[in-house]
Simulated scan of single mutants.
Amino acid sequence: MARIIAALMLFVPGIISAFGIKLMRDTLFDDFHPIFFHVVVQFFAGFVLFIIGIGFIGGFIVHRDRKRQLIKNKNKKRD
Score class of each variant (00 low, 15 high):
Met1Leu: 13
Met1Tyr: 08
Arg3Lys: 11
Arg3Tyr: 15
Ala6Gly: 05
Ala6Lys: 12
Leu8Gly: 13
Leu8Val: 13
Met9Glu: 14
Met9Gly: 15
Leu10His: 02
Phe11Cys: 12
Phe11His: 06
Val12Gln: 08
Pro13Phe: 01
Pro13Trp: 00
Pro13Lys: 04
Gly14Gln: 03
Gly14Phe: 10
Gly14Pro: 11
Ile15Asn: 01
Ile15Phe: 10
Ile15Gln: 02
Ile15Thr: 09
Ile15Gly: 00
Ile16Tyr: 01
Ile16Pro: 01
Ser17Trp: 02
Ser17Ala: 15
Ser17Asp: 05
Ala18Ile: 13
Ala18Pro: 04
Ala18His: 09
Phe19Thr: 03
Phe19Val: 10
Gly20Ala: 04
Ile21Ser: 14
Lys22Gly: 03
Arg25Met: 13
Arg25Asn: 08
Arg25Gln: 06
Asp26Phe: 11
Asp26Ser: 11
Thr27Gln: 07
Thr27Arg: 11
Leu28Val: 10
Leu28His: 07
Phe29Tyr: 10
Phe29Lys: 09
Asp30Met: 04
Asp30Lys: 02
Asp31Cys: 03
Asp31Met: 14
Asp31Tyr: 12
Phe32Val: 13
Phe32Asn: 07
His33Ser: 11
Pro34Cys: 07
Phe36Met: 11
Phe36His: 11
Phe37Met: 08
Phe37Trp: 05
His38Trp: 07
His38Tyr: 03
Val39Gln: 11
Val39Asp: 08
Val40Glu: 06
Val40Cys: 02
Val40Thr: 11
Val41Trp: 11
Val41Pro: 01
Val41Thr: 14
Gln42Leu: 02
Phe43Gly: 07
Phe43Asn: 06
Phe44Pro: 00
Phe44Ile: 15
Phe44Thr: 08
Phe44Tyr: 13
Ala45Trp: 03
Gly46Ser: 09
Phe47Cys: 05
Val48Cys: 12
Val48His: 04
Val48Glu: 06
Leu49Arg: 03
Phe50Glu: 14
Phe50Ile: 06
Phe50Cys: 14
Ile51His: 05
Ile52Gln: 10
Ile52Phe: 04
Gly53His: 00
Gly53Glu: 01
Ile54Pro: 06
Ile54Cys: 10
Phe56Cys: 15
Gly58Val: 11
Gly58Lys: 05
Gly59Ala: 12
Gly59Ser: 10
Phe60Thr: 15
Phe60Ala: 13
Ile61Gly: 01
His63Leu: 05
His63Val: 02
Arg64Gln: 13
Lys67Gln: 06
Lys67Ala: 09
Lys67Phe: 02
Lys67Leu: 06
Arg68Gly: 13
Gln69Met: 05
Leu70Cys: 08
Leu70Arg: 12
Ile71Arg: 10
Ile71Cys: 03
Lys72Ile: 12
Lys72Ser: 14
Lys72Met: 13
Asn73Met: 07
Asn75Met: 03
Asn75Phe: 05
Lys76Met: 04
Lys77Met: 00
Lys77His: 01
Lys77Ser: 00
Lys77Cys: 00
Lys77Ala: 01
Arg78Pro: 00
Arg78His: 04
